[in-house]
Amino acid sequence: MSVLFLLPHLFLCLAEPMMCYKCKRYHLGICYESMRSCTLKYKQTCAVENVYFLTRKGRSMYFYSKLSCKANCEDINFLSFDKRTELICCKHKSYCNLPEGV
């Protein structure tokens, strides 16, 4: 077998897996359970779900975030009567799923 044929396969085996933070309840830089990591699998990305509660005047107030590895993730906003959930996906680097600006 040609060495040139094996080089791309060898590179894939040596590449470090992408990692993400995993926490069920993250707020203002603190994980209120144990902060863990998850390794991205096929078709997964790092994800942060920012949860907001809605005030009587209809404003969103930040409550907490969930950090995870998520399959088939798409950036989206979910809105219900009493809360809003913002889902943000990333895979440009390991541990890219820390919430910013909340």
Rank of each mutant, 00 (worst) to 15 (best):
L98R: 15
G58F: 05
L67V: 01
C23E: 10
M61N: 08
F11Q: 08
S2A: 09
T39W: 00
R36S: 14
F5K: 09
H27N: 14
E33V: 00
F5W: 03
A15R: 06
E49S: 14
G101D: 10
S37W: 07
M18Y: 07
C69Y: 03
Q44K: 07
N50W: 01
C31P: 11
V102L: 12
F78E: 07
K66A: 04
N72D: 08
T39S: 11
Y64F: 14
V51L: 03
P99S: 14
K66R: 14
S60D: 11
H9F: 13
C46W: 12
T55D: 09
T45P: 00
F63S: 13
K70I: 01
L28S: 14
V102Y: 09
G29N: 12
T45Q: 15
I76H: 10
A47R: 14
C90R: 11
R59A: 03
R36M: 07
P17C: 12
Y95N: 12
N97F: 10
R84Q: 10
Y21H: 15
L4Q: 08
C13P: 01
Y42R: 13
E16V: 03
Y62C: 05
I30G: 01
Y26P: 07
A47Y: 02
Y42E: 15
G58H: 02
Y95Q: 09
Y64R: 02
E74T: 07
N97L: 05
R59I: 01
P99R: 14
N50K: 12
L40D: 08
S94E: 06
I76T: 00
K22H: 05
K93F: 01
A47Q: 13
T45V: 04
L6S: 11
Y64G: 13
M18T: 15
T55F: 05
A15Q: 02
C69K: 06
L40K: 11
Y26C: 03
S34H: 06
C20L: 03
G58C: 08
K24Q: 13
R25A: 09
F5E: 01
F78Y: 11
L67I: 01
M19V: 06
L54D: 05
S68Q: 06
Y26I: 00
I76C: 00
D75I: 00
S37N: 13
L6I: 04
C38L: 04
Y95M: 14
H92T: 08
N97C: 10
S2V: 00
C89G: 05
F53H: 15
F53W: 15
I76R: 07
M19Y: 14
K91M: 08
K70P: 00
S37M: 11
L98K: 12
H9C: 01
Y95T: 03
A47F: 04
N50M: 10
E16G: 08
R84T: 07
C31N: 08
Q44P: 14
